[in-house]
């Protein structure tokens, strides 16, 4: 079973009226984005040409924007810094921010997602691609509005599904699971295959889920995420909660990545944080890109697909992942 995302495809999807802000110092690029978005949906699209103008427009606005499209390289302040600034505001925590940039280097992509971007489009952009991203943003907005009314103090099982990829906030390098998927897709598109994933599953979370309020369950997930991030030990690692007690961490490939060692450190960190012994930590680690045997899996590329494999490997809670299709030559059990 795959984690439930906030934007799972919905056949009866209909465009909604949304207000979007495009930020790009290139006026022609702004016009292209406005034309594209305007043609695809019932969107009111505004544009500004710098981070400073964007901050002013956002501050001045009484009804918050529904979505942002941000260029990265702009004089006087980058789109990544702007994204962080936007996300630091309570009313914009869950507002989709999509980077639109000519930059395809790993550092830009990683920093953009770490700053809270939900997706990344490289220029020159394809209009069909722009359309699909706008629709994804729209589904996210609809899902956020739907879940926003649930009571945080009520039992977790009444307001949030155990399979739901809950967004963990307030920890640097912790991103939305949807963003993690998009991040890995973007690495694949940019042919940045040198990527390692570590998947964790905490077995005790399902019991806690049945007993705790939604607020307490979120606090528990936040603590667990913090401890897992510490156990990974790489400051640039990105981590997301995938639902069903599973966490996925991504880091640039490192020689000698040891899944067992990370699992030991994670178990110890969780134990020291007061998690009971029933929180068993199952971990698998593997690496995409040029064929290298590290941890449990052996891959030849397709970084985006690795996420499903990572999730399946811990979700089924077996020593060796069984969810890998036997006829898929890109993946094999080492």
């Amino acid at each position: 079973m795959q984690p439930r995302n906030r934007y799972d495809s919905d056949s009866d999807w209909q465009p909604a009226s949304l207000t979007m802000l495009v930020v790009d110092d290139d006026e022609i690029a702004c016009e292209l984005l406005k034309a594209g978005l305007g043609a695809f949906g019932n969107y009111k699209v505004e544009s500004v040409n710098s981070a400073a103008e964007a901050m002013e427009a956002i501050t001045r606005r009484t009804r918050p924007y529904d979505c942002f499209f941000l260029d990265i390289e702009m004089p006087g302040g980058s789109g990544i810094e702007l994204c962080s600034w936007i996300k630091s505001h309570e009313q914009y925590r869950e507002t989709p921010a999509i980077m639109v940039t000519a930059r395809s280097e790993r550092a830009f992509i990683r920093d953009a997602f770490a700053a809270g971007a939900i997706d990344y489009i490289t220029k020159p952009f394809d209009m069909a691609e722009l359309r699909s991203r706008a629709q994804m943003a729209e589904r996210l907005i609809a899902a956020t509005r739907e879940t926003g009314s649930a009571s945080a103090n009520g039992p977790a099982r009444q307001s949030v599904g155990f399979d739901e990829a809950i967004v963990i906030e307030g920890i640097p390098g912790v991103i939305d699971y949807v963003a993690m998927k998009n991040y890995l897709k973007q690495l694949s598109r940019s042919r940045l295959f040198s990527t390692a994933l570590v998947a964790f599953r905490l077995d005790g979370l399902n019991h806690a889920y049945g007993r705790l309020s939604a607020r307490e369950f979120r606090a528990l997930l936040t603590l667990a995420t913090r401890k897992l991030k510490q156990a990974i030990g790489h400051p640039d690692a990105l981590i997301a909660y995938a639902g069903e007690g599973c966490f996925i961490a991504e880091l640039e490939s490192v020689t000698g990545l040891d899944g067992a060692d990370i699992a030991r450190k994670a178990s110890l960190a969780l134990w020291n944080a007061g998690f009971p012994g029933s929180f068993d930590c199952t971990t698998t680690a593997f690496q995409g890109g040029t064929p290298q045997r590290i941890g449990v899996l052996f891959s030849h590329g397709a970084v985006d697909r690795s996420l499903d494999v990572a999730f399946a490997s811990v979700h089924h809670h077996v020593d060796r992942p069984r969810a890998i299709p036997a006829n898929d030559s890109r993946w094999s059990i080492a």
Binding site: I28, A29, L32, E73, A102, K123, P124, F125
Partner: peptide, 9 residues
Amino acid sequence: HRLAGTAES
């Protein structure tokens, strides 16, 4: 940089 971003469109 500018041309790379828009010329194709």
